[in-house]
Amino acid sequence: MQFTETGSPAYRRILMSMLLGSLVTFAILYSPQTLIATFAQQFQIPPSTASLIISFATVTLAVSMLFVSMLSNAWGRKKMMALSLFITSVLAIISSFSWNFHILLAVRLLEGISLAGFPAIAMTYLSEEISPRSIGRVMGVYVGGTAIGGFAGRVIISAFTDLFSWQVAFLVLGLVSLVCSSIFWYYLPESRNFRRSEISFQRWLSGFRIGFTNKRLLGLYGCGFLLLGVYVTMFNYISYPLSKPPYELSQTWIGLLFIFQLVGSWSSFMFGKWTERYSRVTLMIWAIIMLLGGAIITLLGNLLLLVVGITVFALGFFAGHTIASGWIGAISPPGGKAYASSLYLLFYYTGSSLVGWLGGLFLASLGWSGVILMIGGLVLLVAALLLQIARPQPAQANS
């Protein structure tokens, strides 16, 4: 295989393209999160119903990724990702013309389906095209882009909603995304190591069977499930202690906490780079320590320490996700990389929904300390899975 090496023009084009694709995907996916209260007020619906604006997209995204891998094997990696970005951008523009909440939810459902084409295939494209020595660094750029995209989307939506309306905000986001999608298509190099195959349901089943029979891959799926689950739990419910004594912060200040996603992007870049020098096991241990330490610090009752705690926690999450997602490509067989990536992301987004919901039960019964107790237990479970992943295997890949 002819891999793309660090420092080459093609390498720089791949980095820029992946950053743009991540920006579009995660800006559109998470931007409505800041408007849940606005939708509840405008459409006269409960907040729980308004929150479906996020859930509809993430659920259909997770399920759709199971099928995207089969299509990409027949259509090609670049074509699939570009089509995903273009369709999603157009749907974001269409959503700005929604006149009731049901229409808006229908568009978000379609966005979830179209969004699946980028994250599921991006990991596969990178693992096929980038030299194994550099895959960790590039995966760090990709994961960092998801953090920047999520933050940028929330900022654009919030600012233009305050200045004009949420419809104008969605229109602007869609137009910006369309421009970024065009640049992505122009700059991303064509696949050199991709081998086209016909759409085959039998091959699709065989690919996922491979993804489910490798114990190390199963452990990484579990890590993804737990990592995003505890991260979403932390930021879903952190507003409850912050809005009450002794903090009593306004919603505006609480919303600014999402700026720590930018700190997380730095963590992704650095830990991705460090996978070229240190073992993934060692780096994942540090990610687990940061997750546990950051969660515990939020219990200390001081606002400055709480900010430090959630910052350290965000650093740990993005480090762990960068390591785990890059590890998938390193240990999955050549013919099963697309399927393994899709399964990882399926578990990843399912964890967001299930663990995030479970955190609300702990909050209701035990308060914030109950949430941290749950998070701590699940992070220790990540450590247990790491022991299983790190166990020597026949023909062991780089770890």
Rank of each mutant, 00 (worst) to 15 (best):
126 L>W: 07
380 L>K: 09
154 R>P: 06
43 F>W: 14
120 A>P: 07
339 Y>A: 15
96 S>F: 06
165 S>Y: 04
210 I>C: 12
324 A>P: 02
321 H>A: 08
206 S>C: 09
369 S>G: 14
118 F>D: 00
162 D>E: 13
332 S>D: 06
57 A>W: 02
254 I>A: 04
328 I>T: 11
212 F>V: 11
46 P>A: 15
275 T>E: 10
383 A>R: 11
340 A>R: 00
105 L>H: 09
138 V>F: 05
22 S>M: 08
348 Y>W: 09
303 L>Y: 13
160 F>M: 14
165 S>W: 03
321 H>M: 10
146 T>L: 13
285 I>W: 10
381 L>K: 00
343 L>H: 06
104 L>V: 10
361 L>A: 12
178 L>D: 05
379 V>S: 07
317 F>S: 09
219 G>N: 07
39 F>S: 03
191 S>P: 06
211 G>N: 11
75 W>N: 02
183 I>C: 07
359 G>N: 11
231 Y>G: 12
2 Q>M: 11
18 M>N: 08
301 G>N: 04
269 F>E: 01
115 L>R: 03
163 L>G: 04
22 S>N: 09
17 S>I: 05
215 K>N: 14
68 V>S: 07
143 V>F: 02
300 L>A: 14
49 T>Y: 12
114 S>I: 07
144 G>K: 03
208 F>K: 08
121 I>E: 09
